[in-house]
């Protein structure tokens, strides 16, 4: 455990990406995984515009490197839980684009057969436990999944995601306290995209978010969440620490969402220049693309092929999500209780 913190002192320095953190083939895979989320979300935005998706729809565009980098460090028995900006996490867990998109359109072919919607999908098979709409709930729920890993002794860990806005909820700190006391195998992943809905972090959060673990003896660090390789490096370190039975860890990722909080957000709380700056200079897909080209193992042609494959998957999901019928009216009354 040489590379892990040895005490409860939070580490202050930012992790930098070692050059050997991933092979060119792995990097190409991350590119593909991130592109799938990007194109899927763009398509979801389009279907929303066509009135096919209703209610709330929180897009993950811009934040793709966080979940893909984290997932790259996990094992099959590990579990994932997040809040409502969740489509990217589902795809990253290996859930089918068809099933997710059909849930967005409220159709029978969706993961929850149309009864959950954008914010509520689950796949026990893929280790994905939602999809939760209450800000902060994933702290204790994720600690609970970690409790189960420890109780069963399955050597699994849980990654519990929440945003900078949720980081102010009291239940997060109740979860920190118990997770640390009981040495639960959980990584609290703060996706700090700078805005809790429309309120900037400077106006909603005192201090530095990951440092809030210090009082609970939980180590943590702030990491560039726009570079998937940096995310992966931090994830590997945190996973080793947590799986080693040392208790929880906090990873705060500096990230950015390009779109509004939800679809009806006009974005008046931040400047166009700020958004453009991030898109131009810090885009996670552009960054990995450059890194891959630097390896000279792959070329633009490889990207083009991937673009085409991803587009086909996304278009098929959109087609499926429109062709799948609405749930049968009798579904109104099913799944309220487990029978028997």
């Amino acid at each position: 455990m040489a590379s892990t913190p040895t005490s409860g002192k939070a580490k202050l320095e930012t992790v930098t990406s070692p050059s050997n953190i991933a092979s060119p083939e792995q990097m190409l895979q991350y590119f593909k995984d991130m592109l799938l989320i990007r194109r899927f979300e763009e398509k979801a935005g389009q279907l929303y515009g066509m009135g096919l998706i209703g209610g709330f729809c929180h897009l993950y565009i811009g934040q793709e490197a966080v979940v893909i980098g984290m997932q790259s460090a996990l094992l099959v028995q590990d579990t994932v839980i997040t809040a409502y900006r969740d489509h990217g996490h589902m795809l990253a867990c290996g859930m089918s684009a068809n099933g997710v998109m059909a849930e967005l359109t409220g159709r029978k072919g969706g993961y929850s057969r149309g009864k959950g919607g954008s914010m509520h999908m689950f796949s026990r098979e893929k280790g994905f436990y939602g999809g939760h709409g209450i800000v902060g709930a994933t702290g204790p729920l994720g600690a609970g999944l970690a409790f189960a890993h420890k109780y069963k002794g399955d050597n699994g860990i849980c990654t519990a995601y929440y945003g900078d806005g949720a980081a102010n909820q009291g239940q997060i700190y109740e979860a920190y306290n118990m997770a640390s006391l009981w040495k639960l195998p959980v990584i609290f992943v703060i996706e700090n995209n700078k805005y809790g809905m429309g309120t900037s972090q400077t106006r909603h959060a005192a201090g530095v978010l990951y440092k809030r673990g210090e009082g609970y003896d939980i180590p943590g660090e702030k990491v560039d969440g726009m570079d998937v390789l940096t995310v992966r490096a931090a994830a590997l370190k945190a996973v080793e620490y947590v799986r080693g039975g040392n208790g929880p860890y906090i990873l705060e990722f500096d990230t950015y969402r390009y779109r509004g909080h939800s679809m009806s957000d006009p974005g008046k709380y931040r400047s166009k220049e700020e958004v453009e700056h991030m898109k131009e200079n810090r885009d996670p897909i552009d960054l990995i693309r450059k890194a891959i080209l630097d390896t000279e193992k792959f070329s633009e042609d490889d990207f083009k092929k991937i673009e085409k494959d991803v587009k086909a998957v996304v278009n098929e999901s959109a087609e499926f999500a429109q062709q799948s019928p609405e749930p049968d009216p009798s579904e109104l009354w099913t799944d309220i209780l487990v029978e028997g």
Binding site: T79, I81, Y129, A137, G139, P140, L141, G142, A143, G144, L145, A146, F147, A148, H149, Y151, K152, G170, Q171, Y173, E174, A175, N177, M178, L181, W182
Partner: peptide, 26 residues
């Protein structure tokens, strides 16, 4: 003490942890 667990006085938090554990089949 693995199966009979004293919690801090934090009902919101330990109820959430218990629900998460139940999601996982406990």
């Amino acid at each position: 003490d693995k199966r009979v667990i004293d919690t801090p006085i934090t009902e919101y938090g330990f109820a959430g942890i218990a629900v998460g554990a139940a999601f996982a089949g406990l």
